[in-house]
């Protein structure tokens, strides 16, 4: 994350708690905000996530995560759910001999969020300048410039590869960007926002950050953070652990089950069929 605030770290420590979390984060030093004294913010941005702890059990098929909170009237909102950044390697296809499409090499992507779900109340390009979007990695354009690709010879080549990469992640339901999916309501004079994210079952176990940004006059004026934790449970947790930590036993067990089923089917059919 681009904020270097101690609250963020404290917050991450709290991420494991089952209680819905609520956190108020004013901008650091409020430099830009303070200078723009025309309209000081009176209401602070808040955010709460329901279903913030997802358990992957044997019948898990994804879920929903709803985000709500209070925001300053007259501002736009961007809500981003993302995973910690990591590296990804993919094969790149190209034409060989002018005829055949084949893998022609590896592409290494770094600073890649494993999940990137974003909703904004308005088109991000209309809300702010590209530099401001890049500062907080808001939207596909900013994300594209944030990603590092190797090897990419030219800027235009990188752009093309990154576009393909985002499409690749979208196909696996790991990246999504939507405009206008945030609802606003007036409750007791407060402006309440709410939205629901479809949580993809492809998202791996781990901690996810929910960041809400309040935008006014082309600037991010406030931000709040919450979290979603995804964890394996029950049989899924047991089998995944065994596969990872006890490969030999897991392999032998899998083979024995296969052999027994094969013989079992043979024995059943022999009894039933009988006619040789």
């Amino acid at each position: 994350m681009s904020y270097d605030m101690t609250q963020t770290n404290i917050f991450r420590g709290l991420a494991g708690m089952v209680l819905p979390l609520l956190l108020l984060l004013p901008l650091p030093a409020g430099a830009e905000v303070a200078q723009d004294a025309r309209e000081p913010l009176t209401v602070k941005l808040t955010t709460t996530v329901n279903h913030d702890h997802l358990y992957i059990d044997a019948f898990y098929h994804g879920g929903t995560v709803s985000v709500r909170g209070e925001s300053e009237p007259g501002t736009d909102l961007i809500i981003k759910i993302s995973a910690a950044e990591g590296d990804v390697s993919l094969k790149r296809k190209g034409k060989v001999g002018g005829l055949l499409w084949m893998n022609v090499g590896d592409l290494h992507f770094s600073q890649v969020p494993g999940l990137y779900l974003l909703k904004s109340s308005k088109n991000i390009a209309e809300m702010m300048k590209p530099e401001e979007a890049e500062r907080h990695v808001l939207g596909y354009d900013a994300l594209g410039r944030h990603l590092v690709v190797e090897p990419a010879a030219t800027e235009s080549e990188k752009e093309e590869i990154v576009g393909q990469f985002i499409q690749f992640q979208e196909q696996h339901n790991l990246y999504a960007q939507q405009t206008g999916e945030i609802e606003f309501a007036d409750e007791n004079g407060k402006r309440i926002y709410r939205t629901v994210f479809a949580w993809p079952f492809q998202a791996k176990p781990g901690d996810y950050a929910v960041d809400v940004y309040e935008v006014k006059d082309g600037q991010v004026v406030a931000a709040a953070q919450s979290a979603v934790k995804v964890e394996q449970a029950g049989t899924v947790k047991y089998l995944a652990g065994l596969a990872r930590n006890n490969g030999a036993i897991y392999g032998i067990f899998s083979i024995i089950v296969a052999l027994v089923s094969g013989f079992g089917a043979g024995a059943i059919f022999r009894k039933q069929g009988g006619a040789h």
């Binding site: 094969k91 790149r92 296809k93 499409w101």
Partner: peptide, 13 residues
């Protein structure tokens, strides 16, 4: 698969 242009030029290894 080898001769038609793929939708995506990226794939898992």
């Amino acid at each position: 698969d080898l001769t038609l242009t793929p939708d995506l030029l990226l794939s898992q290894g």
